[in-house]
């Protein structure tokens, strides 16, 4: 049962054949139903090729063959503004991990300097990728801080709502993804994202965005930006795991989201947020 109906098994390395070509859709639909009931359990076998398996082993994470069930997780992200030092390590790590094209950003860091709260000084030179230069004299601001930004993976996301072809979607584990094989590149989702998290990939001509490092988190690894953060300002957790530290903080401490008035239901929470942040 498990081997026959698992959509994610036998995916060798980077070459990903459509698992569905082998099985009739009915069986899998049935299986999914059962999976939701817990009968099928972890039918989702980790898509880990030889090389990836080796790397994952080196990283001390569960080896190849470990099963991943997207219905059993709900990923959340937590950013502590008071800890961020604005080094841009996250931006550089994200760029390398996900081959983000230059001058486009899946994550970026903004610097806020506030003396007059109606006119805060904000900058993000090259998304903070190359660090921040020293402030000019008189522009330090009475209150100053860094705000790391990523896709908020909104529960009621405007971007997936208006994708005309179903290429933008919310995965069962709460990650907003773009199917690069179906995206027509209309750019409507880019217009619809209130946070500026999406862009049209200049080479692939499809919408591109933060994936919560789906290839990493499904293997038990933290996202590249979380792994790179030297001060623990970025954290990653599972809202469906009650013992998870991040999900506990989200559940018990005052947190904030960006543009709450839009009611997009962001899965990215902020600690120590200031009202000037947009």
């Amino acid at each position: 049962m498990e081997d026959k109906s698992a959509p994610f098994n036998s995916v060798p390395g980077m070459d990903v054949p459509s698992a569905s070509s082998e099985e009739p859709a009915m069986t899998r639909r049935e299986c999914l139903k059962r999976s939701a009931q817990g009968a099928c359990g972890a039918i989702f076998v980790l898509a880990c090729g030889e090389e990836l398996g080796a790397l994952a082993q080196m990283a001390g994470t569960p080896p190849e063959g470990e099963k991943y069930d997207p219905f059993k997780h709900e990923w959340v992200y937590l950013i502590d503004i008071s800890k961020c030092i604005g080094c841009g390590s996250c931006v550089r790590a994200c760029e390398r991990e996900n081959n983000v094209p230059p001058h486009y950003f899946r994550t970026w860091v903004e610097r806020y300097r506030i003396t007059d709260s109606e006119h805060p000084l904000v900058d993000s030179p090259n998304g903070g990728r190359d660090g921040f230069g020293p402030e000019k004299h008189g522009e330090e601001g009475r209150k100053a801080f860094f705000v790391p930004k990523i896709c908020n993976h909104c529960k009621f996301s405007p971007c997936t709502q208006l994708c005309p072809v179903g290429a933008s979607f919310r995965s069962p584990d709460g990650v907003m993804l773009v199917d690069e094989e179906r995206c027509i590149g209309c750019g409507y989702c880019v217009q619809a994202c209130p946070y500026g998290s999406r862009f049209i990939h200049p080479v692939k001509h499809v919408a591109s965005k933060c994936t919560f490092c789906y290839h990493r988190v499904t293997k038990g690894l933290p996202t590249a930006c979380v792994a790179a953060c030297p001060v623990g300002a970025r954290r990653f957790g599972d809202a469906k795991d009650p013992d998870d530290e991040v999900s506990q903080i989200v559940a018990t401490q005052p947190t904030h989201v960006l543009k709450p008035e839009l009611l997009t239901g962001p899965h990215c929470r902020y600690l120590g947020m200031s009202m000037e942040v947009r």
């Binding site: 072809v165 290429a167 179906r182 995206c183 027509i184 590149g185 209309c186 750019g187 499809v206």
Partner: peptide, 13 residues
């Protein structure tokens, strides 16, 4: 469109 050849997806799905 970035991919006009996929434009028909609008009526397929």
């Amino acid at each position: 469109l970035g991919h006009p050849e996929r434009g028909f997806n609008i009526i397929i799905t």
